[in-house]
């Protein structure tokens, strides 16, 4: 064709992807989210200190995997909805409501999105709660959730080692070990391990550098 044209498929190939290792785990006081920090375009690491843990409202957060652009757009829209929800209903949204919004967006736009999201949070009603929303837009309530390309390497480890009602420190160790293995075997995951602890007392961030976790 003679006109200037845009090959969307070519652009899609160059898209920035969160080829990722993410997880969220419930524990006796709430929930902890964890993620690696690598963002790639193909084999090139576009960002080695990415923050894939995103706040959508107070103590309701999400882990993003898939297309960086798509998941950021979805998280932004959910954040907007939750802000509106609190203003309209005079109470903060529950994790379930946030997860339902993610689900609604991912399901209705499944043809346009590459987004695998874990929505986890702490609310007074349910305490800790975790919802996995894989591509396709189904929703699954879980005790713990893993996702992203690196997660395939740790299904066995997590299944064998997860226990309900662990303490906070046990949970941090569990996530650290799991993600360090995912990072070790998945070329698309790497960098630091970030965590966010969500409890009745609020939000706490943790960072673990390679020297902290390689032998974890």
């Amino acid at each position: 064709m003679n006109g200037i044209n845009v090959d969307i498929n070519h652009l899609k190939k160059g898209e920035v992807n969160l080829g990722t290792s993410i997880m969220a785990v419930k524990f006796d006081g709430g929930v902890i989210l964890g993620a690696d920090s690598r963002t790639t375009t193909g084999a090139y690491i576009a960002n080695r200190v990415t923050d894939k843990l995103t706040q959508v409202h107070g103590t309701v957060w999400c882990c993003r995997s898939g297309s960086a652009a798509d998941t950021q757009a979805v998280a932004d829209i959910v954040k907007y909805h939750l802000e509106l929800y609190e203003a309209q209903h005079g109470a903060p949204p529950t994790t379930k409501i946030a997860a339902s919004l993610f689900q609604e967006l991912c399901y209705n736009n499944k043809d346009a999105l590459t987004a695998g999201i874990i929505c986890a949070g702490y609310d007074d009603k349910e305490k800790g709660a975790i919802y996995s929303i894989p591509i396709g837009g189904s929703i699954h309530k879980q005790e713990y959730a893993i996702a992203g390309s690196g997660s395939t390497f740790i299904y066995g480890y997590c299944n064998k080692n997860f226990k309900s009602n662990m303490t906070r420190d046990e949970t941090v160790e569990f996530i650290k070990t799991s993600l360090s293995q995912a990072i070790k075997w998945d070329g698309s995951s790497g960098g630091v391990i970030r965590m966010v602890v969500l409890t009745a007392s609020g939000v706490e961030r943790l960072v673990f550098y390679p020297e902290d976790y390689v032998n974890a």
Binding site: M1, N2, G3, I4, N5, V6
Partner: peptide
């Protein structure tokens, strides 16, 4: 370059 392709 030819006329602009408005379909874009």
């Amino acid at each position: 370059y030819g006329a602009y392709n408005h379909q874009i």
